[in-house]
Simulated assay, not measured.
Amino acid sequence: MKQSLFTLEHTRQLTDDTYELVLSGDTSAITAPGQFVNIQLPGRFLRRPISICNWTDQALMLLVKVVGDGTRELVRCVPGTELDVLSGLGNGFDPARAGAHPVLAGGGIGIAPLYGLAQRMRDAGQAPTVALGFRSAKDAFYLEEFASLGCRLLIATEDGSLGTRGFVTDCIRNVPECDYVLCCGPLPMLKAVHSLPQLTDGQFSFEARMGCGFGACMGCSIPTRNGYKRVCKDGPILYKEEIVW
């Protein structure tokens, strides 16, 4: 974990409530896709944990969905704003365990860490299939970005306005050759993907309300087959075999 100041370089609106933020700063503490940062906002007691979408040596990219006053303030920050950031938090996905043809499954804002993951997997010679789920076509984002990586891209929308009508699990059933999943999204989606019989193994990114964000307060503990684990410190990535519902 490292505490440092990052400078907001630009903000781009992707949908009605989803934004891309690029910040410049020291990213040396970030070691794997799937980790997150914890951002201090002026006048707010608790930091806001945000999953890392992608990063370079000197820049950090975040996808932020507005869900309350804190995230609304964050996306309204003007370029040049300095933000106090804890970086390199949590563990990350381990692409080496995923084999040559895994499926990356994301729902809504949960697709954020999958972009940096997909890029690094492609660079390593892996060929992931990316399955993304949204409520409707107007809620979809980052499709061109994933396609530009050369990934096979499958889309599901609940209303059928784009891609397959249904859920991300319906997309995964169409690729029976994929038996390993790396997944991030809302809890009902994680549970549904976890239950698919074709997926013999996988890694799942969990969310929880956090106090400190680095394992001290124990406020984000959840039960696993190996006892209670802290989502912020021992997670957010958990392996399929250790998850209990």
Rank of each mutant, 00 (worst) to 15 (best):
D179N: 15
K233G: 06
A156Y: 02
P188S: 04
A100E: 14
L149M: 06
M210D: 09
G106F: 00
Y115G: 07
D159H: 10
V75W: 07
S161K: 09
L238Y: 10
K191L: 12
S136W: 02
F45K: 09
S136Q: 12
F93Q: 03
H10C: 02
N174T: 08
M218A: 14
C184F: 05
C183E: 14
C184N: 01
R225A: 13
R47P: 07
P128V: 00
G213K: 03
G185W: 02
G108C: 11
V231W: 03
L14M: 07
F141N: 11
A118M: 00
Y115L: 10
D84H: 05
L190Q: 07
R230F: 08
G110S: 02
P236V: 13
E144C: 03
E20A: 13
A98W: 01
L132R: 03
K240F: 09
V66N: 04
E73N: 09
W245Y: 10
D26Q: 02
V168L: 04
D201E: 14
G80K: 08
G108Y: 11
L114V: 01
Q58W: 10
G163L: 02
E20P: 08
Q13A: 14
R165W: 08
V231A: 03
T71G: 05
N54A: 07
D123V: 04
L132M: 08
Y142G: 03
M121W: 03
G43Y: 09
G235M: 10
L117Y: 01
P176E: 10
A105E: 11
G88R: 06
V67A: 15
L5Y: 14
G211N: 14
L117D: 00
V67C: 15
R165H: 12
I52H: 04
G110Q: 06
F167R: 15
A156N: 03
R225W: 00
K233F: 02
T157V: 05
P102D: 14
I222N: 14
V175Y: 12
S28A: 15
A59I: 11
G107K: 12
C53K: 04
W55M: 09
E144P: 13
V66S: 06
G107S: 13
K233W: 08
R76Y: 11
V168C: 04
R152F: 11
S24I: 10
V130S: 09
T157G: 00
K191N: 13
S205A: 10
G90L: 05
C232S: 05
A127K: 15
T7N: 11
I30Q: 04
D57H: 11
N38H: 01
V64W: 04
G110T: 01
E241I: 07
G125R: 00
S205H: 06
G70W: 02
T200S: 15
F134A: 09
A131I: 07
G160Y: 07
A127R: 15
D57K: 09
I52Q: 00
S148F: 12
S28D: 11
V130Q: 11
G90C: 06
R120N: 14
S4N: 13
D170I: 03
V168T: 08
T224F: 05
G88F: 08
A156K: 00
